[in-house]
């Protein structure tokens, strides 16, 4: 079972390395969006510190969503998606591989750069650790749920905007527990409760979402 998932991951990572522009652009989007907020809100550190978790998480949500159409659209356009659907393995496993590959290329970089942006918001060190951990744990769920949106809107005109309409409401629990974890850590309540719930959301998403996305792909490939 793992063989097909690792095969898909290695293929997608090789492809992503060949076209680094997409990874970097989503990352810069994240950086720019986060940096805009202090300009809008004003420089007072304590206000920014209060807003940091929410701002960083919403920006992470939007950055992940930017790269969702790429999950299936390229493969659909050049015909490789059909070949993946005809691989002698359940399509859900193939999609799981693609979701993990997508996370490695979108969620992981966001987590790595989040602490640096946290400094802009004058977050304490625990806060920086918390935001990194939260985004690291939470973004796989974003990729998983996002895969459902990407599969449902495959080949549709206006797909980018449509995906956000479908997927953002489903992202809300991840946003709440993700931002909540940082907030709880910073205010001293301890974010373990939130992080464990976030991890639960991620495991549930990685477990079920690929199969729903596979069903959506089958509908789209009809």
């Amino acid at each position: 079972m793992l063989k097909i998932i690792t095969a898909v991951i290695s293929r997608d990572l090789k492809l992503a390395m060949r076209r680094q522009a997409d990874i970097v652009s989503a990352l810069f989007f994240f950086i720019i969006v986060v940096s805009l907020f202090p300009l809008g809100i004003g420089p007072e550190p304590d206000l920014l510190r209060k807003l940091a978790p929410g701002v960083l998480w919403v920006a992470a949500l939007l950055a992940t969503m930017l790269s969702l159409p790429r999950l299936f659209a390229d493969d659909h356009r050049d015909g490789t998606l059909e070949q993946l659907a005809l691989a002698p393995h359940p399509l859900g496993l193939v999609v799981t591989g693609k979701v993990i590959a997508h996370w490695l290329v979108s969620g992981l970089p966001l987590a790595l750069i989040a602490p640096i942006l946290g400094i802009q918001f004058d977050l304490s060190t625990e806060g920086l650790v918390a935001i990194t951990l939260a985004i690291l744990i939470g973004t796989p769920a974003l990729s998983g749920i996002g895969a459902i949106g990407a599969a449902l809107t495959l080949g549709l005109r206006g797909g980018g905007v449509l995906i956000s309409l479908l997927v953002l409401p489903l992202y809300i629990p991840v946003l709440i527990f993700g931002a909540g974890a940082v907030d709880a850590t910073v205010t001293g309540l301890g974010g373990e409760g939130h992080l464990s719930l976030l991890a639960a959301l991620t495991f549930a998403s990685l477990g079920f979402a690929p199969w729903a996305a596979a069903a959506a792909l089958k509908i789209a490939l009809e």
Binding site: L152, L166, L170, I172, P173, A212, A215
Partner: peptide, 13 residues
């Protein structure tokens, strides 16, 4: 399919 995914998510939300 979106409805089924939505209905599973409503309690979580």
């Amino acid at each position: 399919l979106l409805l089924l995914v939505g209905v599973v998510n409503i309690p979580i939300i």
